[in-house]
Design a protein around this nucleic acid. Structure first.
Lengths: 242, 242
DNA sequence: CGCAACATTGAACGGTATCAAGTATGGTGG
DNA sequence: CCACCATACTTGATACCGTTCAATGTTGCG
């Protein structure tokens, strides 16, 4: 029998702006939590949409791949993120989603979900908000891809990720789990691995960060925010609304 | 008295996926169409959100500006586009929106709109869909900013815009109105004006396009699509849903 | 221990930026 | 209708940021 008890809610907290009753309704409709291994594919490129996915623990990435092997990471997800809210109203299916760490996630089938949305408009609104939050993040990525140098992009990416982990309650102040390789970073930042390596060294030698063995420590948050021109307001829209 | 008659609906068609009754309800709630001159600011950077804007005719751009004068165009809107759907659930307010041509648009105040959304869930869903459609376009921009050369970016941008104008019913096959200057293109594509100029010349000398005096003609659509690696499916999500 | 993935380093190349002129083009007032 | 001016576009030379190629070092895991 699926674990839909109250204790489960605390084990797999949603970060959506929803009254508790709606959260519980959503969780009741969800599958029991599924597990994925590091590197496992959660949604294949071109797959037909069948369910909404919500990440309960771990991290994941959304990738667009090209025939010549080039790829662009278009999103990184942390605990609590909804992976494909927008596809409910606007099918995409040209990206794949992979687990970056071992991860657990909820799956909510499209049929029941649509019923639930009709019954509880607040859920539709929360998913709309997830879509918008994701778009806001994407827009910042666009902006640094279009206007900023390698070092600033990298710094901004690190700021954003650490901030989001913090909001998700995954930042005890110390080192944070950082599963992306330099090659992954290159695919996210639109750079070569070589240049990512050198940009990382630059940030290290400025005493701003320490990154090794899949662990990131931000040594000088103030300084890193400054050179990243990082203004976290774009991540906080959810709070303002609800 | 506002012109809310049936004929007005045809004058200012919505492209949202909505039953006619909902469309009419939306239009009844809207202001009479407003006019903007070329270059006029529709929403200032940092402005408090007060109403939903829908473009009825003309074109507009959404811009993020920086203190040093650098700016990134993050969206270009055509007739029928919703300019700020996502802000209803997720306030942003760090971008400005300017008219690229003389334009007309509808304005729907937030209060009445929220009432309407509660009353008619289909409207909320349509606006959610607009948010998702916009995010899909943004994602493509991200991808070419991250992975493609100047020429391909430019070509892709032209493909996308012409396709969207076509969907909006603004492409009679011949030359299309193209109000962006080379400097605007540079701000959208993350390039210098000089390099935009040279990339344009390259496309011209390949016999793919003709662009002069704010008019764009696509001479070889097949060829342009090919070098742009343009796959228009990401623009057609709305149809699939409704 | 040995292999595979990841990280680091150096050298040469290339795409794009920047700087600096110079040339249309269009709108305005005389 | 023309002189003028502002804006947009074009062109060439040079510099730089980031890529590519190739090799070497390092880490972690079976």
């Amino acid at each position: 029998m699926p674990d839909n008890s109250a204790s489960f809610v605390t084990k797999c907290p949603l970060r959506m702006a929803l009254p508790i009753s709606d959260q519980q309704a959503l969780l009741r409709t969800a599958s029991p939590p599924r597990h994925a291994l590091k590197g496992e594919c959660l949604i294949a490129e071109g797959a037909e949409l069948s369910s909404l996915l919500i990440l309960c623990s771990g991290m994941a990435q959304k990738v667009r791949g090209f025939p010549d092997g080039i790829q662009q990471i278009v999103a990184v997800f942390v605990e609590g993120d909804t992976l494909n809210a927008s596809e409910i109203v606007f099918p995409q299916s040209r990206n794949a989603i992979y687990a970056l760490t071992t991860a657990t996630y909820l799956s909510i089938s499209l049929g029941p979900l649509n019923d639930l949305i009709v019954e509880r408009p607040a859920i539709a609104r929360a998913l709309w908000q997830e879509t918008a939050a994701h778009a806001a993040i994407q827009q910042e990525w666009m902006i640094w891809l279009g206007t900023r140098t390698a070092q600033v992009r990298l710094a901004h990416f690190l700021c954003e990720l650490s901030r989001r982990l913090q909001v998700a309650g995954r930042d005890p102040g110390g080192p944070i789990e950082f599963p992306l390789t330099q090659s992954d970073l290159a695919d996210a930042l639109g750079l070569s691995t070589v240049h990512v390596n050198r940009s990382l060294q630059a940030l290290r030698s400025l005493g701003l960060i320490d990154l090794a063995r899949s662990e990131l420590t931000i040594l000088d948050k103030r300084g890193l925010y400054a050179i990243a021109e990082f203004d976290p307001r774009y991540l906080d829209g959810r709070k303002l609304v609800n």
